[in-house]
Simulated assay, not measured.
Amino acid sequence: MAKNIPLSVLDLVPVGENFTISSALKNSTKLAKSVEKFGYKRYWIAEHHNIKGIASAATSVVLSHIGANTEKIRIGSGGIMLPNHPPLVIAEQFGTLESLYPNRIDLGLGRAPGSDHRTAMALRRDKNDGSDFPLMLNHLQYYLSKEGGPNAIKAIPGYGLDIPIWLLGSSTFSASLAAQKGLPFAFASHFAPDAMEAAIREYKTNFKPSKHLSEPYIIICINAVCAQTQEEAQYLATTEQQKFLYLNRGTDKLLSKPTNEMDSLWEDWEKNGILNKLRESIWGTPEFVKERLNNLAQRTGANEIMINSWIYDPEKRIKSYELIANMWLK
């Protein structure tokens, strides 16, 4: 049994069909307040750009609002795509968040653009492909440290604040870097399960203790949908399946309503590929989710599991997290 493993939440602030961006932000705020009561450890927001169905582009702004509407749950980025930003700006933004909400802020970092190539060019204004991510990380850590002399550039706010930095990844690159730097690591099994075992092995094998962390710490992120019956959970999960179907097709859409006609929407080859990509997703009753979470924890040695939920109805999304918490955390 792995019931002592904490659960956390990843939110992309989904914008569903017939919803506005304003209502999506309100729905995510309500979700954050709810999961705090349910006992989840963290609430992370992911940076994405130029995607109709995701309203989390201004990640630090959203986090500030979430912080103001919660009391104790840790809030953070899952993640900030560092090559999109000057490291000093991120140090200042998260230094501000840490000053507003002391001892509650996590700074999770990724190197992907969180967008398509054209949007990445608009954000980065050059052909930066993330290859200088390790150098940018060094700069960010410097701006948040107490290392600078009297004439050094400092992040104000941010200078000298002990803000936990996490590296996020969907391959072995960030796993290797997190191991070298002695930082905690979060793996994106919710969309990249193929590299999960290799990334975990790379991180654990090569981990070097640091002032930040004495031993490896891994979060595994998955998608999950929980309902009172297996049939309802499978029905609600068709929103997630449609999300990945349209993503694979390059079709930019708002988050779709669930459907009973999924097989009419995709070809067999699309179905097989998407279900393989979503093989770590858990859709079912509380008992089924419990069994699968235990299995995931045992297979990966995860220290923590983070759950993303592509559920169209905001109230059913909250209910899914509540059912999981009642089964796992109580």
Rank of each mutant, 00 (worst) to 15 (best):
L140N: 04
G130A: 03
K146I: 12
Y143E: 02
L137V: 10
Q141W: 05
D129S: 01
Q141E: 12
S145H: 06
N151H: 10
D132H: 09
Y143L: 05
L137C: 09
L140F: 06
S115T: 02
Y159N: 15
Q141I: 10
A122I: 06
G158H: 08
N128P: 02
L135P: 00
N128V: 00
Y159H: 15
D126Y: 00
Y143A: 00
D132L: 04
L137Y: 04
S145R: 09
G158L: 12
N128K: 05
G148C: 14
L140D: 01
L123A: 06
I165K: 11
I163R: 15
K146E: 13
P150W: 06
D162K: 11
K154I: 06
L123W: 00
A152R: 14
Q141S: 13
F133R: 00
L144Y: 07
I153K: 14
G149V: 12
A120L: 01
M136A: 08
L135Y: 02
G130D: 04
P150R: 10
Y142W: 09
I156C: 14
A120Y: 00
S131H: 03
E147F: 14
Y143K: 01
H117G: 07
M136F: 10
N128E: 04
Y143R: 01
K154M: 11
L161Y: 12
P150K: 13
K146A: 12
D162G: 09
G149A: 14
Q141G: 12
H139K: 08
T119L: 09
L161R: 15
S131L: 07
A122L: 07
A120S: 07
